[in-house]
Design a protein around this nucleic acid. Structure first.
Lengths: 190, 190, 190, 190
DNA sequence: AATGAATGAGGATTCATTCAT
DNA sequence: GATGAATGAATCCTCATTCAT
């Protein structure tokens, strides 16, 4: 067995396991033991590396946020027009990786967790601010009220997310819904 | 004094207390004892009336749903045109009673709870179906794709709800946002 | 099984059990479970009544202090001269009840506990102040430096206590030792 | 650099750290990790050198006892009369080094620890016997009951120690208190 | 109808200790 | 010699739930 540099490996394993466990339970009512077991270690080790349960959750949330950021930037880097940028942002929000039931469940739960945990809230705000500023940046050339439109789109994203998470029957692809719904509010860019 | 007819009073008190407690905690991590104490009775009595904790939560959810239904129907009964009906539905979703921080927080939590509780899910579906059919009914005369539009509007409602629950700074009245956003998708009714 | 007024009975049982357990272990490293088991109840009930482990310890300390106060006052009430009062105080400190190995062990441990627990310290100060003022009151008519003498006697009491607790071979009755040792410092009272 | 001869250095560091840690905590509830960290090494190494936690404590106790022995003998070697020897013994007990709050706290804790640990008890007995025989030796020429007087003085030392450890307000120098208190019991030596 | 009494089960967290390198 | 890695065992505490009265 290896002896050095285990920390990042263990942390990664725990974060992954935490997300999986949350996904499986559908809630944050998950024990450190269950997470640790799934990650192949004792719960004592989990505490050794993360200090406490909340830190595991926060790390998991950061992990998901980072995954989302990757989706966003990889798509954004290919977009040249404001419309493309908007499309990139919306589609990133419904990318496979974000739409993975496991992730969507964790995401949803963190959302609520933010309501009672300042740390979680802080992370959530980061996501919200980033999405908002990305949206506004994309919308500015093609909308007269980019802020308001951005807020509506962000709300639409969140709303469709939840519906997906809760398995509501969806008439069509969420991204398409958003884009179609947004279209009339856009002007021509030049 | 006769103790007859205490049951509905006790149940009501517990349901109200549960919502308050959830609102205060910002999560469903609320003890039956705390709820009972707030409702002015022993936890044993709470169990006597509800059987178990989940049933208290479900009753609370039903209570909120019922409150919402009242908002909807009282407004709907005053609406004569499709546009008015749409407005009524949207505004009901952000009525004072639904927008009460306490209620909005409980609502959000129940939402997520549905992900792990079939009973909660069942209740949620009722709400979703009812809202959807109300929206479609209102939209049919003024939209060519009433289903899709209804889904978008419902998602917008949920999304704005969440943002409100999480205390996101809101640029303007959510109902107005939705209506403005929806307007371009409506045709003239005749 | 009875159903009402259990609280004082349970508390008493727990306090007694705690003292016994501490006595048996010779230290405060005693589990709530062990105490509860000895007291014939679940640890959950112990927590229900005391809130936490420290409160059990404090209650036990209070119990011992109260027992000591009884020893003191019963003897004091029979004493008529300053010398008798002094004798009463010293003998109370080495009364059977205080000298019970179980009690002496608990006492000793609380002593040390006071060093790290403000609450325990507070209790200890009460005992110290009370003993000191009793001694000074008794000594004033028969000593020119009652405070200093009181402090010395108090120290002697504590020191002999510890030696007894630690099973040091004792040449004679501690109370007699103290009185003999103190005698030359006393003047005649009139 | 050769790592030879590290053992005594490490042990010394651990013992010192243990005393400091116990002093800071005011109790023996100190973790091996904390001690090791303070001593600048891993807890694994601490175990390597000492086997287990108790051995660290015992070594610390031995260290303190040795320090005390040094105080005693350095003073004793300068004393020529019985009275001087007595003074030397008493003053050694309240020497700077023994009166250091850190040491006094550790000392007190070890004292009580002896009640539940045979090994600690053994060490304590050594100290007690040594002190007793030293006192008796000093007192024999100037007291008719050297044993009894020695016991009283030893008890006084312990008692004043405890009071100091517990931060009781001390009216005057403990050594002076003891000597003044003892004086009337001494005869002239010839 | 109502409650104090009571508990079993579980969960987070800590820590001394061991081991492979 | 030295340490990061790892864990089993314990402990405090919480809480939903049951029961006798």
């Amino acid at each position: 067995m290896p002896k050095l540099g285990m920390e990042p490996i263990r942390r990664e394993a725990l974060v992954t396991a935490a997300i999986a466990e949350i996904g499986a339970a559908g809630s944050l009512d998950v024990t450190v033991s269950a997470i640790s077991k799934r990650a192949g270690m004792s719960s004592a080790l989990a505490h050794h590396y993360f200090g406490n349960k909340d830190q595991i959750f926060l790390a998991a949330m950061r992990h998901i946020l980072a995954g989302f950021a990757v989706e966003v930037h990889s798509r954004l880097s290919l977009a040249n027009t404001p419309r493309d940028r908007l499309k990139a942002l919306v589609e990133a929000s419904f990318a496979r990786s974000c739409f993975d039931p496991e992730v969507i469940s964790a995401w949803l739960n963190f959302y609520v967790k933010a309501h009672s945990s300042p740390d979680a809230m802080r992370l959530l705000r980061v996501y919200q601010r980033r999405l908002r500023s990305n949206l506004i940046h994309a919308l500015r050339p093609i909308s007269r009220k980019p802020e308001e439109l951005a807020d509506a789109i962000a709300a639409l994203i969140d709303g469709l997310y939840i519906r997906a998470a809760l398995g509501a029957p969806i008439s069509r692809d969420p991204a398409a819904t958003i884009l179609a719904f947004t279209a009339p509010h856009l002007e021509d860019d030049q």
